[in-house]
Simulated assay, not measured.
Amino acid sequence: MKTPTQPNVDSSSTQMPDPSQPLQGKKERLLSLDALRGFDMLLISGGGTFLVLLKGKTGLGAIDWIADQLTHPAWDGFTFYDFIFPLFLFMAGVSLVYSLSKGQSMGLEKNSLYRKAFRRMLILICLGILFKNAPIPFFEPSQIRLGSVLGRIGLASFVSTLLFLNFNAVQRLGWAIGILVAYYAALFLIPVPGYGAGDLSFEGNLVGWFDRTFLPGRLLQGTYDELGLLTQFPAMCLTLFGTLAGDLLIRSLSERQKIKWLTTAGVIGIGIGLVWNMHFPINKHLWSSSFVMLTAGMAFIFLMVFYTIIDVWKIRKWAFFFQVIGLNSLTIYYAYSFINFNYTSRKLFFGLYSPLPEEWHRVFEAFGALVLVWLFLYILYRKKIFIKV
């Protein structure tokens, strides 16, 4: 991808980007975003399972540490696996900027963009319900889980569309910080019947009480659902932060400035998250404000690294593996649930690894499934089949 030259921009400037500056109507894909999305999806489409199964088998402490990072903490705390979904929400915001800016450059009115975002939200909510409940218990609606990853992405993208089209970057930052502070205040100040205010335990938190009281259907954790109602608010802030990153990348700034501001935003976000953690613990299940700030900061840093290597330094061959996955992220998310790649891997490759000790069989079965997943996506890539909503 060629980066537009900006002869009038002083790359050494330390001024904050002007939010009123017009966006570029770039048509090229941001290759680093596709690769980062593929890296993220790899961990939930077989790559994470393969690494977890290696734990305790290699004798290497580094492998065991990585495996531990690919499981969720029971409650408070943080592992890298907690970062996967927040990173995807963040990237949805980055993509949104490119999509909406392209629509505006084509002369589409706001109402048209609103309708498109609303339809997309409804489709993702329906796909999410199907994904979380298949086979759907049609005759037992109380067993249908309404919260879903796809639904959350759809809702966050719709709200971010409304805010992007009506507020500049600084104002959207204000919205995000305001939501996170309000959420923080709500969990500490609103009393929960039987537990009081400020109880962040599994049983007594406000999020759980709200879901039990107002969210119909099955709750994932029984007493609450981490993809339920109240947690929608802090989660959508990640997509709002993503629109800020998209703003930086699409504006008439030098590459050096873009890298500098992505890095600065990342360091500030991580710092705020760690400081906030001292009173509001980092907790993915509650989508605590400290958790959102930490993962937003990490997302800025990851985007900066991928952008620098792929789009600025033009070192791209290594990224192709991830781009194949990232260009069909919805496809593999769904396919891995409805297609038994492990079964096919065992059928095809068991003869190769059967002589090995039995404890290694599942490891190589998972690795074979990962290979099949990538080949499946590569065929779609070669055929130029990209399924999107």
Rank of each mutant, 00 (worst) to 15 (best):
T213E: 12
F214N: 05
R218W: 10
L219S: 10
L220C: 03
L220M: 01
Q221P: 07
Q221L: 15
G222P: 06
T223H: 02
E226M: 12
E226L: 15
E226F: 09
L227V: 05
G228P: 11
G228N: 09
L230A: 07
L230V: 05
F233D: 02
F233N: 04
P234N: 08
C237Q: 02
C237G: 06
T239R: 04
T239Y: 08
L240F: 03
L240H: 04
F241E: 13
T243A: 08
A245P: 12
G246A: 11
L248E: 05
L249N: 00
R251F: 05
S252M: 12
Q257E: 13
Q257M: 06
K260Y: 13
L262V: 02
T264W: 15
T264D: 02
T264E: 10
G266C: 14
I268T: 01
G269L: 01
G271D: 11
I272R: 01
G273R: 12
L274C: 08
V275M: 11
V275Q: 03
V275W: 13
N277I: 14
P281H: 06
K284V: 00
H285D: 12
H285F: 15
L286C: 05
S290P: 00
S290K: 13
S290F: 00
F291P: 04
F291E: 04
V292G: 09
L294F: 10
T295D: 14
T295K: 09
A296N: 10
G297Y: 07
A299D: 07
A299P: 04
F300L: 01
L303C: 06
L303M: 09
L303W: 03
F306E: 04
F306M: 01
T308I: 00
T308E: 06
I309N: 07
I309P: 04
I309M: 13
D311P: 02
V312K: 03
W313M: 15
W313C: 11
W313A: 14
K314T: 07
K314R: 15
K317S: 09
W318Q: 03
F320M: 10
F320C: 04
F321S: 01
F321H: 05
F322I: 02
Q323G: 00
V324P: 09
N328A: 14
N328I: 00
L330Y: 05
L330E: 02
L330K: 05
I332P: 00
I332V: 04
I332M: 07
Y334T: 13
